[in-house]
C-alpha cells in the first residue's frame, strides 16, 4: 500500500511501498512541484529505482530554477538505497526533523 499526500504547508508525505506500479500516482503530485519542497519519508517502508527516478526527474527540473527537494526522515534501508545509488550526493537529505 502506497500513499502520497501534500500537507497545507506544501510538505509531501510518502508512506508504504513506493514501487514501479505507483509511478503515475506519485508523478501526478511531483510534476506540480515548482518550488523548494520538503518530502517526508518517515512512514515510507520501501523504495526502488522507480521511485528514485521520479525524485531525480523532479530534482533536475527544479534545479533549473534554483530550487530543490529536501528529503527527510528516511528509514535505514531506504537510506541505504539512496547511498548505493549515490543519490546522497544529488539530494539534500535531513534526518530526524
Amino acid at each position: 500500500m502506497f500513499a502520497i499526500t501534500v500537507r497545507d504547508d506544501g510538505e509531501i508525505v510518502l508512506s508504504g511501498r513506493f514501487d514501479a506500479s505507483q509511478i503515475e500516482t506519485a508523478d501526478a503530485i511531483f510534476e506540480r512541484v515548482s518550488d523548494t519542497t520538503r518530502v517526508n519519508f518517515q512512514d515510507l517502508d520501501y523504495i526502488s529505482s522507480a521511485g528514485l527516478g521520479i525524485l531525480l526527474k523532479t530534482q533536475k527540473r527544479l534545479s533549473a530554477s534554483g530550487h530543490f527537494l529536501i528529503l527527510m526522515n528516511m528509514k535505514k534501508m531506504v537510506r541505504d538505497v539512496f547511498r548505493i545509488a549515490r543519490f546522497d550526493m544529488v539530494f539534500r537529505i535531513e534526518e530526524d526533523q
Binding site: S48, S49, G53, Q59, K60, S63, A85, R86, V90
Partner: peptide, 22 residues
C-alpha cells in the same frame, strides 16, 4: 555512472545497479 553530476544522471539503468550492489 553514479558519480556523474545531477544534470548528467540518467533516469534509467539504476535498477540493475542497485541489484548488483545489494
Amino acid at each position: 555512472d553514479t558519480l556523474r553530476p545531477l544534470e548528467e544522471r540518467p533516469i534509467g539503468g539504476l535498477g540493475i545497479h542497485l541489484v548488483r550492489q545489494m
